[in-house]
Structures are given as C-alpha cells and as structure tokens.
Simulated scan of single mutants.
Amino acid sequence: MEDSLPPPAPITMSRAATDVHRLPPEPGRPCLRGTELRYLLILILHRERRALTVGELVAAVDRAGFDVLGRPGKTVSDALRWEVDRGRVRKPARGRYAIGTVCHQTRWRMRRRIARRRALGGTSHVPGSRHPRPAPDAAAALSPPAA
C-alpha cells in the first residue's frame, strides 16, 4: 500500500515565512511608519526615476538612515498600496513600484516633513502605542533652554 503513494512533496516556505524579521531598531535611528514612511518612499521613487523592488526600497530607507518597524518588506508594500490608490505610485509588476504623479508643492512638503523627522532623531517606540515618542535627548534638544 505504501509503495503506491507518491513521494512526499518537498517542504517549501512561503515568501512571508522566509521574510527576515529585523532586530529591534538601533538606538538613535528614527523609525518610520505611516505617513512619514510613505513620504520617504515616494521621494526615493522620485529620485530614482525607475521602478524599484520592495527589497531595493527597504535598502534605500536603510541607507537614508531610518528603520522600519516590523517586517520591512510587508510594511513597505502595505504603505505603497495606499499611494497606488492615490495615483502617486504605480505598480508596473508584482513587487515593483514606480513614481506616479506628485505635484511640486506636495514633494516640497514631503521633503520638509522627512527633514523634520530626521532632526528629531531616534524614537523610544512603545509596542502597541499609536505614535512613537521622541527619545529623551531629542526632546531636550528641541525644547527651549531653561531660564
């Protein structure tokens, strides 16, 4: 009876199962999520002027000096899905994204917001909280000096 059974199929893992989870964010490196992550991704796509894979976008965010919480590939693709619906990003193929239509004023606002986020420095992210809080040293740097 056992001789008539086909050999067992090789065990394969899905892309999600093989996606490498990042270690906790490095101290002092800002973590991006939500609007700020979407803005940075759009600015990267605008600068490159070509379709990029999710992996290339994750590497570009890392080179820009930011961390992405959770599974970076999934977080980036989820963030870009919103922008595809708005027309700011196009999806020419599975896992590839290209710049769509973004007006000059919007790009300027995006650059300002990312620069402001970079000036804040690292975050002390509390898991489960809705918004990461600035690290104590970054908050002190932005507060006015004591009299």
Rank of each mutant, 00 (worst) to 15 (best):
M1E: 12
M1L: 12
P6W: 00
P6L: 06
P6R: 06
P6M: 02
P7R: 02
I11N: 00
M13F: 14
M13K: 13
R15W: 02
A17P: 01
D19L: 13
D19F: 05
V20I: 14
V20E: 15
H21F: 03
R22G: 12
P27W: 02
P27A: 10
R29Q: 13
R29Y: 10
P30L: 02
L32C: 09
L32T: 07
R33T: 05
G34E: 02
G34K: 10
T35N: 09
E36S: 08
L37P: 13
Y39G: 08
I42Q: 11
L43E: 09
I44K: 10
L45G: 03
L45D: 00
H46S: 12
H46D: 12
E48P: 06
R49E: 07
R50Q: 11
A51T: 04
V54K: 00
G55C: 03
E56R: 15
L57H: 10
L57C: 11
V58K: 13
A59F: 05
A59W: 05
A60N: 14
R63D: 15
R63C: 08
A64V: 12
F66W: 08
D67C: 11
D67L: 03
L69K: 00
L69Q: 04
R71Q: 09
P72C: 12
P72K: 12
P72Y: 10
G73Y: 05
K74C: 04
S77I: 05
D78M: 13
D78G: 15
A79D: 06
A79F: 07
L80E: 01
L80K: 04
R81T: 14
W82I: 00
V84G: 04
D85G: 07
G87F: 06
G87E: 02
R88F: 01
V89A: 02
R90M: 05
K91C: 06
P92I: 09
A93V: 03
A93G: 12
R96N: 09
A98L: 05
I99Y: 00
G100I: 01
G100C: 01
G100P: 03
T101M: 03
T101S: 09
V102H: 10
V102G: 04
C103N: 15
C103A: 11
H104K: 07
R107M: 14
R107S: 14
W108F: 09
R109Q: 13
R109S: 12
R109W: 07
R111H: 14
R112M: 13
I114M: 09
R116V: 15
L120C: 11
G121W: 06
G122Y: 03
G128Q: 08
G128W: 09
S129C: 02
S129F: 05
P132N: 04
P132F: 03
P134T: 03
A135H: 08
A135M: 07
P136K: 05
D137H: 12
A138I: 07
A138P: 05
A139V: 09
A140T: 04
A141K: 11
A141I: 11
P144Y: 02
P144T: 06
A146Q: 02
A146Y: 00
